[in-house]
Design a binder for these strands. Structure first.
Lengths: 254, 254
DNA sequence: GAGTGGTCTAGACCACAGA
DNA sequence: CTGTGGTCTAGACCACTCG
């Protein structure tokens, strides 16, 4: 490794390894050489290689399994289209679910998700958005979504009990058209969606559940659905590994 | 520093320093003690403090000026509302500009921006979105926005020459209502907006211009404006330090 | 030139995975 | 038990800022 164009030898090491990966020297899902070996090949100390690999981890290009080694990532960028034309096309079996499955099919991955339904005391910010009192009991539908058995999304969707209790929203399968169709059936059809998007390091729980490193980032998307009368009938907290997703929004002018 | 709850002593060090900042021990804009001193106070090596500070930099809580020291950040989260109700309220002097000024006023910061106008050969992705040939000449309006003299946004807005050449879009000041009003005057009123949102490490240029560290992230937002006839009349590439911004989108159901 | 952060090497020890 | 990455200390040198 000669001297540096930018600063930081580790950046140059990162560039070299990135180039190797992109040239196909290490295919998707394959193991990289161990750090010690890379260090020797490149003529630097292992700590420098370690730092370089963290750059690539941050970019989402590689994935480290401690004790096993460093792998080239399998998952390409997943697209999420929040509103607009594509939504309608993929609406067969319910909003997010149908779109997610279609998108993963497009990428050649197998989609799977795990759903649980519970009643919990609403977190403060959720309660506030629902216009409920802090600590009020609400229905929560939690979903973890996988692509080829790697977790790619966590979501927790909250509904007011007076609407959701005893309805199909409290069942694992919400039926045709998904949760929004059920809300409509119940006389609370959403008329306006709002999403607040934030980017932050994952919490420790999130890092574990989504198999992320601490120097990666997640999108935290908080979606609210309001009826025409202005009542908020759903708050959905969605957490996505930022390096795996691209978001799309569209809306009419004026 | 005793043993760790999570792993990594540097995380604990980061927590300690974060707590000090949040308790007000180090006010906004003030210098932290130097790394050597923090290391001594906390009984760890300087390299460990350095790593801990990188965590706080990643979160946007502190800002490092090499050779000067480490400061507590001055800029709180800035909100950007892409569509929906708030847009109309703040539309006095043109879209983004008016909303940006209003938001910074709300935060008690002084807004300023620098605009340049040029004709350039369109980058490949911009050309594609504009439906132009690669390398076609287009008009570009570049803007850097500041809050209290810290850069908080870069944007490059591209227009087809056949629409923009010789119009007020080629002037530094686009006049009342901003660029979209001028497009409307010219018979190309935008009817549909689309934004693609991505998160990535800053390029070296971006890191310099936005005074960011390499382990921070930017939002890259690519906005396109289409007329009712389906022609794309603007492509705007917006780069924001991710830790400084929260994005909001809203749209009607169906 | 002195102060301050950024990085590198060297070597050690720890934690986790798998045979 | 061995292999692999994660981190820590120690000490050094460099780059940038400011007087």
């Amino acid at each position: 490794m000669s001297s540096s164009p930018g600063r930081g030898q580790y950046r140059e090491v990162a560039d070299t390894i990135r180039a190797s990966i992109e040239s196909g020297a290490y295919p998707r899902g394959e193991l990289l050489p161990i750090e010690e070996q890379l260090a020797e090949q490149l003529g630097v100390h292992r700590a420098t290689v370690n730092k370089a690999l963290k750059v690539l981890v941050a970019e989402g290009l590689v994935r480290v399994h401690r004790g096993k080694g460093t792998f080239v990532s399998k998952i390409p960028k997943i697209r999420r289209d929040s509103a607009g034309r594509q939504r309608r096309d993929t609406r067969e079996e319910g909003q997010a679910r149908g779109a997610f499955d279609a998108e993963l099919r497009r990428l050649g991955l197998t989609a799977r998700s795990e759903v649980t339904v519970d009643q919990v005391s609403a977190p403060a910010d959720v309660a506030e958005r629902l216009g409920a009192e802090e600590g009020a009991t609400v229905l929560v539908r939690r979903r973890v979504m996988f692509g080829d058995d790697e977790p790619v999304q966590m979501a927790a969707s909250y509904f007011p009990l007076d609407i959701a209790a005893g309805s199909q929203l409290a069942e694992v399968d919400t039926g045709p058209g998904g949760a929004y169709s059920r809300l409509a059936d119940l006389g609370h059809a959403p008329a306006l969606f709002t999403e607040d998007v934030d980017v932050r390091p994952p919490t420790e729980d999130e890092a574990r559940a989504l198999r992320m490193a601490e120097d990666q980032r997640v999108y935290e998307i908080i979606r609210t659905a309001e009826t025409a009368t202005g009542r908020t009938v759903e708050v959905n907290v969605i957490v996505l590994p930022a390096h795996q997703w691209r978001l799309r929004f569209s809306w009419p002018a004026e």
